[in-house]
Nucleic acid binder design. Structure first.
Length: 586
DNA sequence: GCCGTTTTCGGCCCGACTGTTTTCAGTCG
């Protein structure tokens, strides 16, 4: 099918941003002017933050309207978009062996030293770097001693072990555990996660913690002697970095309580958000850093104790941390038009839950009780359908048996509502796993694609189109099928899937399982813009997993969703009305 | 390389930590 420029938005923008970053990397190695390098990185950041398609801008000759893009970079982007390559980049690449960029991946080794090591010693790969360090050839260079050699060796080793980022759920629990320990220390007034954890990004590189204390040295000592510490990477009077036994890197910064707000703002980021915010501050005659917002004229402190004060002084609403990615939130905050983000409290139920009738580990009743304990009004039991043998999918006969159990439980727990649902398999040949007369009998039908995931895009899209076109289908589960860090999405045109879902009035799931988070934040935002309704579900296979709603809601918030965008914020009666209306329309 | 309520030239976000330095450059976030 023809790809309009709109369909590929996220993909193309990301691609162009990477092009510019690679150019910047190579210019660094080359020892170019740091301002020229910064210009490429600045342009890359703006391209990445665009919510419109860069290819469309290019077609309209409007590239230079993007901040940070001038004639030179615009020409390179245009060339790349038209021809798929950049002569400038290829010329740069030709000057260095490809593996030289590897060297820059080593923490502690920046462009200056990498360049020096390359040109003086001929080192051009990680392996050669390690060898040069072991044979003490590195320390013959100016500015590099034995300690640097040892440090680089350790970093190379760690780099080879630690290739991936950590799931938010893993990093969050580690961060909260350490924060809780530090909170007990008498010198600590406040401590909380900042950085990408506070922004609830789906994966986390390093954990950032921020503490308020009048006596930072004591906090540093407490932090670096925690039982979790495997290695102290850095320790200063107000900032330290440790490696935990689980190989998580945690940074702790301590500031005086009087400037905790500005420090929290600063260390929450994102970097892109902060750069844009500092830029705005300068244009208004201020200077912003982790110690506060200062008036340039007389260096007077304007705001610092509370995060909100800083934004307010700059004429902005305070954006929730999840929005701080420089994807339009600063502009929206300036207009007073930040969205009222959906919150975990807004959820009235969960529409994707398993029981021990298929591959869950608990009875339907246990799941119901857990849902009631969370304050829900309803839960949909959506066990797998018959063809999914590995998950003990339910035959039509078993569906009928299960229905009787649900009816009994509905009487027992009224007015709490148990929806008889199914996670219906879209089979490899495109057919659905139950006939229409069975589908009609469910209160809610959610569809998933687990089987034949290796098919090419046309067949996958054909299956999805057929499934979404079925009048009894209400929700499309985990629309891309990706498992973070383990499994790529199946071949799916997500923009087209969203359009089909909108046309057929099928809700799209944000699956809250920490390793799925599918749809992700970027596509969920896109779905909202295209008029889709989303459902924030957990795919829980045990009662405790209903708490995954926290992560699903995090994605929804990062996608700018409001309560009205999420199907399962509807109270029971309205949800039923909506589900019935869909069925009647058939 | 970009940009302009300071500028079409001369600036460019900013501070902490490390290591190898005797006063600071490189790196990171």
């Amino acid at each position: 099918m023809a790809r309009t420029s709109q369909e590929g938005t996220t993909i193309r923008n990301q691609e162009v941003a990477e092009l510019l970053q690679t150019i910047a990397d190579l210019l660094e190695v080359k020892g170019e002017s740091r301002f020229r390098i910064a210009a490429y990185r600045e342009a890359a950041r703006h391209v990445e933050g665009l919510t419109v398609d860069i290819a469309a801008l290019d077609e309209q000759g409007r590239l230079e309207e993007v901040p940070g893009i001038g004639p030179s970079i615009a020409a390179k982007i245009d060339e790349y978009l038209r021809t798929g390559r950049s002569q400038y980049l290829e010329d740069l690449r030709a000057e260095f062996p490809p593996s030289l960029l590897e060297l820059l991946q080593v923490p502690g080794l920046g462009p200056r030293k990498a360049q020096e090591i390359y040109s003086s010693l001929g080192v051009r790969s990680l392996a050669e770097l390690a060898q040069a360090a072991r044979s003490h050839r590195l320390s013959t260079l100016p500015g590099i001693g034995r300690r640097t050699e040892e440090k680089l060796l350790r970093e190379i080793e760690r780099l080879q072990q630690r290739t991936r980022r950590y799931l938010l759920s893993v990093a969050l629990s580690a961060a909260e555990e350490v924060a809780a320990l530090l909170r007990d220390h008498p010198a600590v007034e406040r401590v909380e996660p900042a950085g990408s954890i506070r922004r609830m990004k789906e994966t986390i590189g390093d954990i950032d913690l921020l503490a308020a204390s009048p006596r930072p040295q004591e906090v540093m000592d407490a932090f670096t002697t925690l039982p979790q510490v495997k290695e102290i990477i850095a320790k200063g009077p107000t900032k330290s970095t440790i490696l935990t036994r689980d190989n998580l890197q945690i940074d702790l910064r301590v500031v005086h309580p009087s400037i905790y707000g500005s420090a929290l703002q600063y260390f929450t980021g994102s970097k892109e958000h902060n750069i844009a915010l500092r830029d705005l501050a300068i244009r208004q005659g201020y200077k912003l850093n982790e110690y506060g917002l200062f008036r340039l004229a007389d260096d007077r402190l304007i705001a610092g104790r509370h995060e909100e004060d800083i934004y307010e002084a700059l004429g902005l609403q305070c954006p929730p941390p999840e929005l701080r990615e420089n994807r339009g939130e600063i502009e929206a905050a300036a207009r007073g038009q930040l969205p009222a983000l959906v919150a975990e409290d807004d959820l009235r139920g969960d529409l994707h839950v398993h029981s021990d009738w298929s591959d869950g580990v608990s009875t339907i009743e246990a799941m119901v009780q857990a849902a009631i304990a969370r304050g829900y009004e309803y839960v949909a039991i959506t066990d797998h359908s018959q063809s999914l043998g590995v998950a003990h999918g339910l035959s039509v006969e078993r569906v009928r048996e299960q229905r009787r159990v649900i009816e009994d439980l509905n009487r027992k727990y009224a007015p709490f509502l148990i929806l008889a649902g199914t996670e219906l398999e879209i089979r490899g040949d495109g057919s659905l796993d139950y006939p229409d007369d069975v589908l009609r009998s469910f209160d809610i039908v959610t569809v998933s694609l687990h089987s034949a995931r290796g098919q090419e895009r046309e067949r996958v899209m054909g299956r999805l189109a057929l499934a979404l076109g079925n009048p009894y289908v209400d929700v499309l589960n985990h629309p891309t099928g990706r498992i973070i860090g383990r499994r790529a999405p199946y071949e799916v045109d997500i923009a087209e899937t969203i359009r089909l879902a909108v046309a057929e009035r099928v809700a799209l799931e944000i699956n809250g399982s920490p390793d799925r988070l599918d749809l992700d934040d970027v596509w969920a935002r896109r779905a909202k813009e295209l008029g889709a309704v989303l459902a924030v579900n957990t795919d829980a296979h045990s009662p405790s997993q209903l708490a995954f709603a926290r992560y699903g809601i995090a994605v929804a918030r990062r996608a700018w969703l409001e309560r009205g965008d999420v199907l399962n914020t509807l109270p029971r009666e309205k949800l039923l009305a909506r589900l019935e209306r869909i069925h009647r329309a058939a």
